[in-house]
Amino acid sequence: MREVAIVSFAQSRHARRDLRNEVEILLPVVQEAVQRSGVERPFDFTCSGSTDFLQGQPFAFVLALDAAGAWPPIAESHVEMDGAWALYEAWVKIQTGQAETALVYSFGKSSPGDLPEVLSRQLDPYVVAPLWPDSVSLAALQARAWLEKSGRSERDLAAVAARSRRDAKGNPHATVAGDFAIDDLLDAPYLASPLRKHDCAPISDGAAALVLVAGDRARQVCERPAWIRGIDHRADLHALGARDLTRSASTRIAGEKAGVARRPVDVAELHAPFTHQEYILREALGLAEDTQINPSGGALAANPMMVAGLIRIGEAARRIHDGSARRTVAHATSGPCLQQNLVCVLEGE
């Protein structure tokens, strides 16, 4: 495999409701990532991730191209997925030898719609979607199954929320941050038992962008490139009754293929939009106790849909860029109850 590194990363401040249009949100983020990369346009390849249903308008990604710098025309593609998979497509393009540099971005504006209801449109259109099961209720089914099986408690879930929000105090991009006592969190009513509001990721509007560069060129433009040493993604069955919701088989396979366990992991950025999912993912990836989880606050601090996975990779890269970690793991998820998962291993020199 060719050596490919993330050399820059930028993200918006993820507000609950951003009044700017998608291009106005994206443009400064793309400009910042490009400027920090030290790479001159044009990029050999550009790839983005987004989904129309969030803002209820078809072809959302088409107008977003206005922010990409697509003139003169560019080699470009788009996945109707989280930007983490756009990064994967760009990494593949570099592996084919057709590109040395790539710009990757994604955006998501969830605020116009009712997100948990919108996400119910991801389900089997004939027998499940007509029942309108919202995303929080489905996650609650998974949480209940996991609590029963693991013997853990709702207090363990609240501990993840409290830690994430506390860590997010150091993250200027977060939607939710602060000090919360676990007992106070547990006093809150259920949204869908056993999940309370703190167990669920906030709804955020936002965007992120990063730049990939191959080989020695990455060393030239970046003091400490974050090298992609392994990347893989896998899907699970969609039907909720057909898989063991208390495990993430696809994350386990992706983690093995990406080589997570080959050496110790300093920091892991896990895309867990619900507290219990962090435990499921840690187990699936076999992360050690001393691996720091989600120092950014994770998706529980800011969860712009279609962006939060790419942000995990960007945050994991940032720890390499600033020298605070030597080896990091990033994870992205998509679909109901962790149906699809991507794992990326990053290392410094």
Binding site: L19, R20, N21, S111, G113, P125, Y126, P130
Partner: peptide, 18 residues
């Protein structure tokens, strides 16, 4: 089968278009 679907969106025009 008929599966009626209704989703309500509150659009924002963005700064320039506003």
């Amino acid at each position: 089968i008929q599966t009626p679907m209704r989703l309500t969106y509150h659009y924002t025009a963005g700064i320039a278009t506003s």
